[in-house]
């Protein structure tokens, strides 16, 4: 266990170093921005991964929480002139409360039924974003979201925002790591492997599932907050059903039940459209094919899948 903890510390130290290195050596604002988007997507994937990978509960409506975070801060800062730093906890709290209320009946479902319940919830929230136009700006979107500032530091420059986002990512990674290594983490994995068995050995599955659901909503809302203050403009399309599916795809492609998998999945799904750009008309076809092929041949995601291949190759060498 001690050994394992040391390794983890090294991992996070290397990771933080890489972030600092990237932040200071990369000059071009475009790459900084791409990496910032990757950071936001990583937060989305991480939250959902806690729910899907560790607790084994699927959600096809998580973009709703992403949206609540973004619209929450937009409404509070613009309509009520609240400081963004007060809007942040408020937006996260709003997402958590919604998750709690929705989670109670929804998490009683399982399998496809759970998927459908969360999908329906996500669609309804998205329609609210679109139709409640006096508050949300409707389909035209919400403009004029302010720049983040902290005392003398303005986060209007790409580099500062990059550090802010990745700082949140790093903190979230450590929080999730702690949860996973704790008693709760073991209980979660028990639910993932078999809900009935878990409850038979005394795990309060209902409470635990709800807690993880609320936690993952909080991460999504945080990502929404960061997105809103990065782009300064939000519209309902960003938080649609497609966005929810993209989040699930990040988790599944990257690798379920793996913190680093979330990072990989988010990176790939942010960069993939850039690479596929060359295919122009064929972009959608290629994207669809990649999704199918990865899932058919590496159903446990790229992280586990590539490791399996690597281990198999190693075994052959040993013989």
């Amino acid at each position: 266990m001690n050994n394992h903890q040391t390794r983890n510390r090294i991992c996070y130290a290397v990771f933080s170093l890489l972030i600092i290195l990237a932040g200071y050596t990369i000059e071009n604002p475009y790459y900084i921005q791409v990496l910032t988007f990757i950071g936001i997507n990583t937060l989305l994937a991480l939250g959902l991964n806690m729910l899907m990978g560790y607790a084994g509960q699927i959600s096809l409506g998580h973009a709703a929480f992403f949206g609540i975070g973004a619209y929450g801060t937009a409404i509070l800062t613009v309509h009520y002139n609240l400081s963004p730093w007060l809007a942040l906890p408020a937006a996260i709290a709003a997402a958590m409360i919604v998750a709690y209320i929705v989670g109670i009946p929804t998490l009683k479902l399982s399998g496809y039924y759970l998927g459908m319940g969360t999908l329906g919830f996500g669609m309804i929230v998205n329609i609210l974003f679109r139709e409640w136009s006096s508050v949300t700006g409707g389909a035209s979107g919400f403009i004029g979201i302010p720049t983040l500032e902290l005392g003398p530091v303005s986060f209007s420059s790409g580099r500062n925002y990059f550090f802010l986002v990745w700082g949140f990512v790093l903190t979230s990674f450590i929080i999730c790591q702690r949860i996973i290594d704790s008693r709760i983490g073991r209980a979660l994995r028990a639910i993932h492997d078999g809900e009935k068995a878990a409850s038979a050995v005394g795990v309060d599955t209902r409470k635990l599932k709800l807690q993880v659901f609320v936690l993952s909503a909080a991460f999504s809302a945080l990502a929404g907050f960061l997105y809103a203050h990065l782009v300064f403009f939000i519209s309902p399309g960003t938080f649609s059903f497609i966005a929810s599916i993209r989040m699930v795809t990040m988790v599944v492609i990257g690798g379920m039940a793996s913190i680093w998998g979330s990072l990989l999945g988010a990176s790939l799904l942010t960069l993939l459209p850039e690479w596929l750009h060359a295919f122009s008309e064929f972009e959608m076809v290629v994207y669809g094919l990649i999704l199918m092929i990865v899932m058919i041949f590496l159903p446990r995601g790229l992280t586990r899948g590539l490791l399996d291949i690597y281990e198999r190759a190693n075994k052959k060498n040993d013989h």
Binding site: M52, L60, Y112, V248, V252, M256, V285, Y287, L291, M295
Partner: peptide, 15 residues
Amino acid sequence: EPIVLIIITVGASIF
């Protein structure tokens, strides 16, 4: 598993 099949069919729909 349901989750794998969901992603595959979603991939198919995009395709």
